[in-house]
Design a binder for these strands. Structure first.
Lengths: 343, 343
DNA sequence: CTCTTTTATGTTACCGGTAACATACTTTCA
DNA sequence: TGAAAGTATGTTACCGGTAACATAAAAGAG
């Protein structure tokens, strides 16, 4: 049962009666191959189903055409927005003739991060896109220490001297809060994200800042913390409703929690937006289909992925003026908020 | 700005005053290296932070130690169970010293599947795990045609002569339906999954079969189709409630749709399980925390991933007795169903 | 104390490509 | 028309490892 001999560049060269080099030139569209030869070799490549061996190419060229996206499973499945960021990455990668692989980095791997870095040292990938890491991420530290090309996409807050693309969480949160204040609300609740996520902290910061700049007091009892999941949004809302201070609006650090919060409000007999106005963050695909359609801060998530990938693709050692790009956010007004008519 | 010369096996050999081969032996824990030499080389490897180059190893050994999981983004983010299947795969992969990469296969790539197969032809991966492909998947066809090692995990129905691991969808659906019938229900609704998914069809088949084997008529008007998402479960339930025939129980083809269905029932003023009993499929993590806790068919998802990975790891050309493994399902009884006291 | 076996290390060739340089054959143009 | 420039191909060495074979040194056997 002998394995079918691999069809290599040499096989083709032999059949064509040329040298390997000429075949290589055809594959890479070099000029200086006569039309006749080019045609013959092209035909043979099809006939014998020749596939260039990326391994060999990499070894020889030493400049990989692949990027690696690092994620943690836990995140992957709880937050719709990864779908969109991936699409952005894919676009940039495809457009530039690159490839993308996704590598997992679960807590069980923390001991052995070198599993990941060896992809870089083996010249299989050009660099890493690290998706919204927690602020304590040992991976980010290691990549930085070893000068491996990488970029953090989202949630960069808390890191120093790294390359990142992020959205303007603070300005976004301010827009949302300003909007609620403009509608007359004074008792505004807040449901935040996980403590170890920089983006969550920034949104909270923006919320506080907006209140203060309007001379409103920040009511700690109207603030609770979630984990970006719908269920925790539900629970947090329930807790906020038990408070003595009656809130008339709530700002949640993401849309999923807003969805949970709305359900909780309804289960308590309150109407949205008549009794309580709700603003989310993200503008995930289902935000516009919610009941009522959710007013939220739209992140340019697709572009986030695109920019991250482009950074790595253009990355060259030496051209390291520290790179940080903040993309603007936009308030999308839908029907989950209303005026407070109590003045 | 010269690049720091790569630390290769030759660098170490030179520093140690030995040949490359001896260094290679140390790296691979070959016997026949004197303790003294081994120690010296090990020290140098640490000192110079030497990382073996997987590319070179692959090119030389031609037996990759990496598996590729192929997914479609669309699925990835709508179905919690991928998280668990990945954990199963990771376990098997880790335990056997393999690596895992995830490759995306979105609709925009359909033209160019060879992007994927070239990972195999380049000897970078040993084979593919294809996760719950639609029955029309061109990828599966191509892998089969070109005799590339792969295994379909979940949703194998509809393919012939392929290797797969799957759960017993039919038996599971029968268990669920039998259970409802045993509680006295006769008007049982069904909310199915996408038409192009084998697993969805099997669950519907099991539902029909169970009804018939109890002499109950299958009411087509009590059956609707969803897409495995919570929202569509909600909508489907609403439609079923508009029917003239009053159902007393409903079986949904997955848990997410069950969740949506329960919300719809509640929004229509019906109580679960007092007025309508609900059974789901999957036993995703939130099933037990739902209100009421959901009775559902538990899939051994973690094992599904494990078995799929193990198959590929053990895969050898020639040992190809067609492989199909069906893992048993289990009915988990919680509080979303009750007796029907109308006899 | 020589002869075989085991242990320890080195040499050569190769995995499948590409870069860099060399060479032969055509054109082009002064 | 002959030299320079352009076109078409081949040769050699190398990317960073490993397999297979060769050899040298140490250990065990008779």
């Amino acid at each position: 049962m002998q394995k079918p001999t691999n069809v290599t560049i040499s096989t083709i060269a032999e059949k064509a009666g040329t040298s390997k080099m000429t075949v290589s030139r055809v594959i890479n569209n070099h000029p200086y191959v006569s039309p006749k030869t080019r045609l013959k070799i092209s035909a043979l490549i099809k006939k014998f189903k020749f596939h260039p061996n990326m391994t060999a190419v990499n070894l020889s060229k030493m400049e990989p055409q692949t990027l690696a996206l690092v994620i943690q499973y836990e995140h992957l499945f709880t937050n719709y927005y990864f779908s969109e960021i991936l699409q952005g990455i894919e676009k940039a990668v495809d457009d530039n003739g690159y490839d993308l692989i996704i590598l997992n980095y679960s807590t069980r791997h923390e001991i052995n991060i070198s599993h990941l870095t060896s992809w870089y040292y083996s010249k299989l990938i050009k660099g890493f896109i690290v998706l919204a890491p927690p602020m304590t991420s040992p991976l980010v530290r290691k990549l930085k220490d070893e000068h491996i090309p990488f970029i953090v996409a989202g949630g960069h807050a808390g890191f120093k001297n790294i390359n990142y693309v992020d959205v303007d969480n603070i300005a976004g949160a301010i827009k949302a809060t300003d909007f609620l204040i403009g509608l007359g609300h004074k008792s505004i609740g807040f449901i935040g994200g996980p403590f170890d996520r920089g983006d969550a902290r920034e949104r909270e910061f923006g919320f506080r800042k907006a209140l203060m700049s309007h001379g409103l007091k920040v009511q700690e009892s109207l603030m609770d913390q979630g984990d970006f999941s719908e269920d925790r949004g539900y629970q947090a809302m329930q807790r906020l409703l038990q408070n003595k201070i009656r809130l008339t609006a709530v700002f949640t650090a993401n849309d999923l929690m807003a969805k949970g919060a709305i359900t909780a409000l309804r289960d308590s007999g309150l109407q949205v937006p008549k009794d309580v106005s709700v603003v989310g963050f993200d503008d995930i695909n289902i935000a516009s289909q919610m009941n009522p359609p959710l007013t939220t801060v739209k992140q340019p998530i697709f572009r986030l992925g695109e920019e991250a990938a482009l950074f790595l693709i253009d990355y060259e050692e030496g051209q390291r003026n520290d790179f940080g790009k903040i993309l603007p956010t936009e308030l999308i007004v839908r029907e989950s908020c209303s005026h407070l008519w109590n003045f």
